[in-house]
Nucleic acid binder design. Sequence first.
DNA 1: TTCCGTGCAAATCTTTTGCACGGTC
DNA 2: GACCGTGCAAAAGATTTGCACGGAA
Lengths: 155, 155
Amino acid sequence: MSAAHSPSVAIREDGWIERAEAALAAAGHKRGGARRAVLELLDAQRCALTAVEIEDELRLAERRVSRASVYRILEELERLRLVQRVETGQAMVRYERVCEHDEHHHHLVCDCCGIVMPFSDDALEQAISSLSRRVPLTVSEHEIVLRGECRDCAA
Amino acid sequence: MSAAHSPSVAIREDGWIERAEAALAAAGHKRGGARRAVLELLDAQRCALTAVEIEDELRLAERRVSRASVYRILEELERLRLVQRVETGQAMVRYERVCEHDEHHHHLVCDCCGIVMPFSDDALEQAISSLSRRVPLTVSEHEIVLRGECRDCAA
DNA sequence: TTCCGTGCAAATCTTTTGCACGGTC
DNA sequence: GACCGTGCAAAAGATTTGCACGGAA
């Protein structure tokens, strides 16, 4: 699965887009320009975006995609577990790509300015994983949000 | 603050309603029947409810409260930290009362039937608390949701 | 040629707001 | 009597759906 690509790819060897395209094809989807644009945008993010932010970013990049398509695309990507929803407690849901080997992360949200930052912590993951074995639920995902005031807002 | 009440109260000596009424009065609020009904309902729950569920429960209990009031009341209670929002990743936000001495809890959500169950875990809280000291945010709250398939749905 | 992906517009659903009345203080 | 809490109706905002067209297979 992790075959070498063209020699100059560098930076992220993750191949999330390739994995996504393959999964979509396997699920019987044809290609489409709007979805490709959304995939590329999500792939370039370091943290979660809302549907509206995705629409705006794409418009700025001169590759307009209708809001309805953004939602439909995100819905399908979520179903295939290629993106995950992030509930930050702000009106809108956020979405971000799911990485396989990258450490997965959670979110810090500033109640004041709304900024969302990723973080990860091994001890926390271990606690969650141990816990997951003891609850009356077959756990498939978990989500953690820490809320507070960021440094800029505190200043 | 924890004066003895009438001798037959028993069961939960928590006094959340009393604390809430006091906090509301201190914040300059007058009393109101709708709010009292919402307080009593929330006090009787063991887990989080949505605004619509609250409205429905109260209608069933023959104490109708308009949806707008439910939202306004919840908003104020949240501001006073008497209730907290719970984002379960289902369309609607849930609310539950905040207890002072009771251990605080988090939530298990079944993706299949939507049931929401509370749980708590010391190791998890310790991991969160240690982590909270290391992130670039003055953490005031945290929320954890485990998602998966409950036993009934798996059966 | 068949069917899916996409855009547009309308519908739906949750939550918020404006306004008037009645109760609390 | 002054002002706040509440209900009702309308508004606002996010997300979903219906339909028709154009592009992918």
